[in-house]
C-alpha cells in the first residue's frame, strides 16, 4: 500500500487509471453484449473469413470501401454505406435476394437473379460479421412456418407490415418511386432477416419490438397465403382495383359480346 500511496501522485497515474477503466468497460461489455451478435462469428472459421474478405474486395469494395468502411458517392459515382456492424443477416438478405451487388443506382436497389452461391454468401457474411457485432442469420427453427401461429401473425402483420406490403404481402408503393416489394416468393429466412436488419426503406423490427417467436408467426401467416385463394384466382390480391378491372374486361366484355351476338341474330 505504501508503494501505491507513494506513486499516486505520479504524473502518469491518470493515464494508467484511464486505461484500466477502459479495459474494465470493454471487459464488462464483452460479457454483457447480446449473445446472437457473435453466433455467426463462432460458426465461421478463420478461413471462411479470409475467403469472404477476398470475395468482398473483388465484388463489394468499389462501393463499400476496401475494409467495408463505406464510401461517399463522388460526382454521381458509386458509393455505399459502411458495413461494419450490419451483421451476417444483412449480408445474407442483400446478397441472397440478388439486391447486392447492386446493378444500378435508383430510387431503390432492385432484386435480381442471385449472383453468388449460398456458400460464397456465407463466406461474405462471415467476413462482414467479423468486422463488428451484428444480427446473425436465423436458424432453420427460428423461421419454420409450421411452428408459428398464423392468426397471431395476421394481427402483427396488419399492424406492422400491411400499410406498405398490402394485407397479404402483395406489395405496395412508397414515395418517390420507392416500393415495398411483394413477399410471395421471399424465403422465410429472408423475411426474418429483413425484419431484423431493415433493408432500404424498411424500418428495423428488433427483437424487443417483435420477438423472434412473433417473427415466426408473421412468417407462418405469409406462408398461409401461398396456398392460393379459396375463392379462385387471386387477381394479384390487389383489392378492388383489379376486381373492377376484371369486372369490366371479363364481365362487361363478355356481356357486350353476347349483346352483339343476340342483336345480330336474325329474328
Amino acid at each position: 500500500m505504501k508503494a501505491l500511496a507513494a506513486r499516486r501522485h505520479h504524473r502518469s497515474a491518470p493515464v494508467v487509471l484511464l486505461l484500466l477503466a477502459l479495459l474494465l468497460t470493454g471487459a464488462v461489455y464483452a460479457i454483457a453484449q447480446p449473445a446472437s451478435a457473435d453466433a455467426a462469428q463462432a460458426a465461421a472459421s478463420e478461413s471462411d473469413v479470409a475467403a469472404g474478405q477476398k470475395l468482398f474486395q473483388a465484388n463489394c469494395a468499389t462501393c463499400h470501401g476496401v475494409s467495408a468502411e463505406g464510401r461517399e458517392a463522388v460526382d454521381g459515382g458509386a458509393g455505399g454505406p459502411s458495413l461494419i456492424g450490419v451483421g451476417a443477416a444483412a449480408v445474407d438478405f442483400q446478397v441472397g435476394t440478388g439486391r447486392m451487388p447492386a446493378q444500378m443506382n435508383g430510387a431503390q436497389i432492385q432484386a435480381k437473379p442471385v449472383q453468388f452461391t449460398q456458400d460464397d454468401i456465407n463466406k461474405l457474411a462471415a467476413y462482414v460479421a467479423s468486422l463488428g457485432a451484428g444480427p446473425a442469420i436465423p436458424t432453420e427453427e427460428q423461421v419454420d412456418p409450421s411452428k408459428g401461429d398464423a392468426a397471431n401473425g395476421m394481427a402483427l402483420f396488419r399492424t406492422n407490415c400491411a400499410m406498405c406490403h398490402n394485407a397479404v404481402g402483395a406489395g405496395g408503393a412508397l414515395s418517390q418511386g420507392k416500393w415495398a416489394p411483394a413477399l410471395d416468393d421471399t424465403t422465410p429466412t429472408h423475411i426474418y432477416e429483413a425484419m431484423l436488419t431493415g433493408p432500404q426503406s424498411m424500418p428495423v423490427f428488433n427483437d424487443a419490438n417483435i420477438t423472434p417467436d412473433e417473427k415466426r408467426d408473421i412468417i407462418a401467416y405469409l406462408d398461409e397465403q401461398r396456398d392460393g385463394s379459396p375463392g379462385g384466382l387471386s387477381l394479384g390480391s390487389l383489392g378492388p382495383v383489379s376486381e373492377g378491372l376484371w369486372a369490366w374486361v371479363v364481365g362487361i366484355g363478355l356481356l357486350i359480346g353476347a349483346s352483339v351476338w343476340i342483336g345480330a341474330k336474325s329474328s
Binding site: 394481427a155 400499410m163 406490403h165 398490402n166 394485407a167 405496395g172 383489392g239 382495383v241 369490366w248
Partner: peptide, 18 residues
C-alpha cells in the same frame, strides 16, 4: 385477407370498388 376492422389499421392498396 383484410381481417376484422380495427380503426388503427390500414393496408397498402386500400381502395373502394371501382
Amino acid at each position: 385477407n383484410y381481417g376484422p376492422f380495427d380503426p388503427g389499421v390500414v393496408s397498402a392498396g386500400a381502395q373502394p370498388d371501382w
